[in-house]
Design a protein around this nucleic acid. Structure first.
Lengths: 337, 337
DNA sequence: CTTAGCACTTAGGCATGGTGAGTGCTAACC
DNA sequence: GGTTAGCACTCACCATGCCTAAGTGCTAAG
């Protein structure tokens, strides 16, 4: 009972099951694959695979289906990441290059990914990373209303309108802006709190209240960590793929709506050597995802933000992994500009 | 066979069916409601109602369920809009008042609405309405990179970073800004294209290319009509309510993801005298929504942006209508500040 | 180690029959 | 006229039993 053939049998089972959605038996297996042995031999192999917990029979006399562990072995040791077709590459490239701003890029990415994989796609907004303060603007909208704009070195712009405690003149705002900018310019967004305190100390007392309000606002703007935002698309695919066991779609939709759950899950996923990370079925922390798999990878300069898809454990891993990886690469490239 | 009693029977059927999800028969009806007549009489009434197309029997010997037309009559003539409980009112108020910016308000609104109604909630971003240009800012980020900011009188801020065709000095930008602002200040966002053309004509030739780039960008920013954006929550509720007939959930999810479909649907809905608008089953344009109902209403100063929910035709209309209306009112109030 | 053969298990399809809910109709009643 | 009781009739639904096809594990031989 040779080890390599047993793996080959597992691969065949996974591939057939992913394709047909039905338990696959020994006879069907020898018919559809060139294994060079009889069904009886396959049965022996299958018994061994079942012994190892890689496949199970749903009932006494049905074929076998892979377990989570079986998929895991398949993903880790057996499957190759299939290269994408040229057409797919072109589609990704042209679609992403047409994007106008960051929101648009994110939007297009999820749509594209969900269409290419026929699954639910998810993308996390890029990290602030080591972004620093590049510009600050205070714009007087009304006697006591100020638009505060904070621009980081990554090109990210955050803004908010606040109401000032005291009336404020245009000239004052300009001065305050210079003052803050001088103190904060080049400071990492994660560190501006300390600088702001120092900075405030040197402001003349009668402007202190206004300056304090502005400072608090800047602090909040810097704290808006986009990394905890995500975009999603393709939930309709979920309905299609769970048509056989619609019991689980509710919990999965709930988990997806609870973005916190997905975000934690994504950030926990470390990518392996091949550049993608896979969580299969019960490997997922959240119980409601016990029949779902997540394929994700990082993108961007430090690969800290994640992009990926979610689908049934019975998914086409090689293809999905390839697509996710490709999209992440193009995404990184686009964002470098 | 009195007309009022027949309507009473229809009401009873609708209420029971919404509650139990099962066809309701004549006997059960007289037991659960004080109709003062026997089941035989009810049968006669039911036959008449079926004749009018207000109810149907799924098969020969089951109870009756309301048709779309039956729900329509129920909504239009029979049901009252139930007032919300004090607790619900408080919940709405406190939750919405805690919001920080517009995005946050939208987000909280859909979550709240989907939780209160146990359905899918949808809210359209407010219209630009008759917003006018209030401020323009050009911020030099790098030798040829400029952040363009457009602020409207409604407090909306749109921004984008563009790359200039030629190098540009800080001073030039300041002048261009003054120039544009002088020409555009107070112009409705919908009309700035003409003004921009005039304005460009008076720019010195060597600055023309840069000015043109900035003008195009401003035009685009003004054109970003937030009205064609919407936020959605509670898709998981959809799965729960379609647990009986999961066939339709796929198409509905698709329609929801195709935001265009929903947006057109929402904007087509005119609210009636009671301040809410209802589309029932096949009244919806899109075929995939033939088993769904939409309850929506306008909010904001001119009630042009819409907020509403989507659920199965078998929904608790009185409650849903009351909740949608209440949320819309609080939403309008919040946005007035 | 591989294979053929065989006994064994079981899901799923199909016909059968019984049951209960609900109907429509008719004839009597107020 | 509207209302009611009674009754025959219709189906969905369920349980039962039977059969078949698929697939297995095991054993003994190659």
């Amino acid at each position: 009972m040779s080890e390599p053939r047993r793996l080959e049998v597992l691969r065949a089972i996974v591939e057939d099951y992913v394709h047909s959605r039905e338990p696959v038996g020994s006879k069907a297996l020898v018919e559809r694959h060139q294994l060079g042995v009889s069904s009886a031999t396959i049965r022996n192999d299958m018994a061994a695979l079942e012994e190892e917990g890689l496949i199970v029979a749903p009932h006494t006399s049905a074929g076998r289906i892979p377990t989570d562990k079986g998929y895991r072995l398949f993903v880790d040791r057996i499957s190759d990441v299939k290269p994408l077709s040229a057409a797919e590459r072109r589609a990704i490239q042209t679609l992403l290059e047409g994007a106008e701003d960051l929101d648009d890029v994110m939007e297009r990415t999820v749509r594209l990914l969900s269409q290419l994989t026929n699954q639910v796609a998810v993308v996390q907004y890029p990290h602030l990373g080591n972004a620093r303060v590049r510009h600050i603007e205070f714009v007087l909208l009304a006697p006591a209303q100020v638009l505060v704009v904070l621009i980081s070195t990554t090109g990210r712009v955050e803004q908010r309108v606040i109401t000032m405690p005291d009336q404020v003149a245009e000239q004052d705002l300009l001065e305050l802006r210079q003052h803050f900018l001088a103190a904060l310019g080049g400071t990492p967004l994660t560190r501006i709190t300390g600088q702001l305190a120092e900075c405030l100390a040197t402001v003349p007392a009668q402007k202190r209240r206004n300056a304090g309000a502005l400072a608090r606002c800047l602090e909040q703007l810097a704290g808006i960590n986009r990394e905890d935002r995500m975009v999603m698309a393709g939930t309709a695919n979920l309905a299609r793929s769970t048509v056989d066991f619609p019991l689980t779609i509710g919990p999965i939709l709930e988990a997806l709506e609870e973005q916190v759950v997905m975000l934690r899950l994504l950030s926990e996923m470390e990518q392996d050597a091949r550049g993608v990370s896979v969580r299969i079925g019960r490997e997922n922390p959240h119980g409601s995802l016990s029949e779902a798999s997540v394929v994700a990878t990082g993108y961007g300069p430090d690969s800290s933000a994640k992009v990926g898809v979610l689908g049934p454990t019975r998914m086409d891993y090689p293809n999905t992994m390839a697509t996710v990886r490709a999209v992440a690469r193009y995404l990184s490239r686009i964002l470098n500009n």
